[in-house]
Design a protein around this nucleic acid. Structure first.
Lengths: 159, 159
DNA sequence: CTAAAAACCTAGTGAAATACTGGGTTAAAT
DNA sequence: ATTTAACCCAGTATTTCACTAGGTTTTTAG
């Protein structure tokens, strides 16, 4: 099981996208400013998210990304899977030859754990996160700070 | 959350120890032979396991390691904790300054996940693993192979 | 039409962790 | 005294992470 900042960054960015979905496409520059994640790194993550059909891109000024599906139907497990190609806890990736052709002693244990984690993260949708009170509080603070710092996207400047 | 071969190796080695506990202290050379883990790497892992008081060492010929407590009272979570100093999924290690002094959007989510994983692995004792049928089958095969290959410890040779 | 904004793409890089190797030293049993 | 094994330390190849840097392409606004 690999669950590092990579997966955390991806989920945080997707959550930011879901929160600001009502104001049209969200640019990676905006997400970078609000969530303090390197723009180029975000590009790499969103490349994978797009290939997994979790987001759609709109190019050109005023463009950005939007969710491919409603947030109710996007689950945290999918996001982590999309950026972390290897999210199982077994190490042998489901195959049973962990140890020179033989199954290792603890193989079943890690399979069980994988299932456990996966089903936990599969039960959490983006929308359910957006609706959490603490997420709303943190998000409101981040938006206020971004405006203070003059981090405004094109469409916000021109309307 | 970091759960790699390091933690898997540690749990596998401890399980091997628990399985062969009845035959006196188990040497790392034996575990290395049966579980196909580098001896020197095992030494490093057991150094940490000993510092966490999960195992006791007996030096000299016929020596090795044995569990500090009965296997009923040793849980997988403790083993992973002992070798992987950092087993929480948050990245900020429980502190709430994930993002330049601010809490990050998904902080609570990763805290929940950490609790989930930890409580799952805290519910599994070494003894409960030893009693699993598939573990017994794999172990029996490993023992047979070790004997074939002449991997016998001192006390087995002299009796 | 031009300039700018944004996605998109590729290559490289420093830091950290992993999974080892190799060389010893020390303690205890035969 | 020799051997067995734990113990300890230093180094190392590989991988991953998180990021930087430089570009190209598409699209909109002026």
């Amino acid at each position: 099981m690999r669950l590092t900042t990579k997966g955390r960054y991806a989920v945080t960015a997707m959550l930011d996208l879901a929160i600001h979905a009502d104001k049209g496409p969200v640019s990676l520059a905006d997400i970078s400013g609000r969530q303090d994640i390197s723009l180029s790194y975000l590009e790499q993550l969103f490349s994978k998210l797009r290939r997994s059909d979790l987001v759609q891109s709109i190019r050109g000024p005023g463009g950005g990304y939007r969710l491919s599906r409603p947030g109710q139907n996007i689950y945290v497990a999918e996001i982590v899977d999309a950026v972390n190609e290897n999210v199982d806890a077994t190490g042998c990736g489901g195959s049973t030859n962990c140890q020179q052709g033989e199954i290792c002693l603890t193989h079943h244990l890690w399979c069980d754990l994988s299932d456990q984690i996966h089903s936990f993260l599969s039960g959490i949708s983006l929308t359910s996160l957006v609706e959490r009170r603490e997420v709303q509080n943190i998000s409101a603070r981040q938006d206020a700070r971004s405006v203070d710092h003059g981090e405004l996207s094109l469409r916000e400047v021109h309307h």
